[in-house]
């Protein structure tokens, strides 16, 4: 009987101990569903995404939604103040969240968010980077990874060109961004482990 649900996609980390596991899960699901829908709407606007098979569109979204949310919601993690803002808008200290059981994943997300924000990307650059995060040909279960790979390469080329134009003296930014991809994968794996530990019995 866990008393806390330490995910900023929730309205609060506190869980009502009188509620059933199913009710807690339903409430949490209602909280994060709008953000997931936004990721899907974002994906639909990526040129070429809708031309992929429906199976592959779903596979990419299933595998990559968490990573896209980490990028989009990096601003919820404040490293200087050491706080995390939940969807209700309320801030909680990292220390408090750690005492509730959030450990390595929370610290890794803080670290990731700080480094991503330090790159000071424009909205357009961030959007294109997010598209590159989502369209990854090495996700499992793809039926036509060649098509995904072609789209991924095209998006990556466009991102490189945009970064090179906007930051002519900082060629390392593109490399730093590419290095964020395995970091996101690692955060995704850590998050999946936590999810599995938290699964609710029907």
């Amino acid at each position: 009987n866990r008393m806390h649900l330490v995910c900023p996609m929730n309205t609060s980390p506190f869980v009502d101990p009188h509620k059933s596991g199913h009710a807690i899960w339903e409430e949490f699901s209602m909280s994060f569903t709008p953000a997931v829908r936004e990721v899907v709407e974002f994906a639909k606007r990526i040129p070429g995404f809708r031309e992929l098979s429906q199976h592959d569109q779903i596979s990419l979204l299933k595998a990559g939604t968490f990573e896209v949310l980490v990028v989009r919601f990096a601003s919820l993690f404040d490293v200087k103040e050491r706080t995390v803002t939940f969807l209700s808008g309320k801030k909680y200290s990292v220390e408090m969240l750690c005492s509730m059981g959030a450990g390595d994943l929370l610290n890794s997300m803080l670290d990731f968010s700080e480094k991503l924000r330090a790159l000071d990307l424009s909205e357009e650059e961030m959007s294109l980077f997010t598209a590159v995060v989502l369209v990854s040909a090495d996700r499992s279960g793809l039926e036509n990874s060649k098509s995904v790979e072609a789209l991924q390469e095209s998006l990556t080329r466009t991102l490189r060109s945009l970064i090179t134009q906007s930051h002519p003296n900082e060629s390392a930014i593109f490399t730093k961004l590419l290095l964020k991809l395995p970091e996101l994968r690692s955060l995704n794996n850590m998050h999946s482990e936590q999810l599995l530990a938290f699964k609710v019995q029907p």
Binding site: V40, Q57, I58, T65, L195, L196
Partner: peptide, 27 residues
């Protein structure tokens, strides 16, 4: 529910959003 995305009900949300359906699940 060995797949984390299925565990979250993510596929259902994604599928509905992709198809443009706004209907909620009726359990």
């Amino acid at each position: 529910y060995s797949d984390p995305a299925s565990n979250l009900g993510l596929e259902d949300i994604i599928r509905k959003a992709l198809m443009g359906s706004v209907d909620d699940r009726q359990d």
